[in-house]
Design a protein around this nucleic acid. Structure first.
Lengths: 164, 164
DNA sequence: ACCTGAACACCGTTCAAGT
DNA sequence: ACCTGAACACCGTTCAAGT
């Protein structure tokens, strides 16, 4: 319901009645609405990661493109995570660990495709921002592909031009 | 108050009492809280643009770096704009026109620094995401500089390497 | 351990009435 | 035109009580 209708727009009462319990019953399982959000986030991310693991041998850019395409369904969650992270420590923790995860994946990818070590950190940051931007603002498939390909294009000139 | 305390965390009652009027008096000037937000956004952006106009002759990367530094103060507004844009048409309109603005500025900058025309669109998108990312997640000044410099680095190899 | 009806505190917004 | 006290509808959360 958070994914489809938005966090603010789905009151606890509606969640409870969908679960066929009284509203306050939710508070026996979750401390507050933010913890419920984090539970949803954990689920959604775990599924996406499990799916991604099955695409081990595809080229890096394709894997990334596919993952972004998957996660884009949840762009409503992305905006609310940013909004709630300022107030809720649990959401803030989740957000930070998500950033670390994306950071690690991108650092690895950029290093393997020959990004020079001295610009690796900044390049990764740019990558994180691009991923986040794509999640925040859904794009058409070709646009997404073009952006990801520009991002993941090897940094050094191709070997054919390097050797005489 | 939206900038310092956050949109959700500053109730209309507090705004009203800071303005020394009754709460409902605000509704004579603004249709609702979202329109009040847009009024704040317009003010903040107008000031930043006026400041930026005075830096005409500096290099492009420096201008951009400085503008991002200025706007970073308002990162609380950035998150709430994304959150409210999904619900409020006025906020959504403001957000779209802001993106168009950044898009135009970046397209211009990238074109002038020799980005090939066929990757201009994607490059601009990457730029928009980087700007948005920097506004969303405050960075240290050197980190910001490094990221912006990586982004604005001319795409074609420098002339010294091109000519024999 | 698990669930509930009823209440509480707080919020954005509106109404009817004033000047 | 401008402002207000009082109310309304809705929200997340808690309490005291049940099984």
């Amino acid at each position: 319901m958070f994914v489809d209708g938005g966090y603010d727009a789905t009151p606890m009462t509606r969640i409870a009645s969908a679960a066929r319990v009284a509203t306050n019953t939710i508070y026996w399982y979750f401390k507050d609405k933010d913890e419920l959000l984090v539970a949803v986030l954990d689920r959604v991310l775990a599924r996406a990661l499990a799916d991604a693991a099955s695409r081990d041998q595809e080229p890096w850019a394709d894997q990334l493109l596919w993952a972004v395409g998957q996660l884009e369904q949840f762009h409503r969650l992305v905006t609310v995570v940013h909004a709630r992270a300022a107030t809720s420590p649990v959401v803030n923790d989740w957000h930070e660990s998500f950033h670390r995860l994306v950071d690690d994946i991108l650092t690895d990818g950029f290093r393997k495709t020959g990004t020079p070590e001295e610009s690796l950190r900044a390049m990764t940051q740019v990558g994180v921002f691009v991923v986040e931007g794509l999640l925040l603002h859904p794009h058409s498939v070709p646009d997404r592909r073009e952006i990801i390909e520009l991002l993941t294009r090897p940094q050094r000139p191709p070997a054919a031009l390097d050797s005489p």
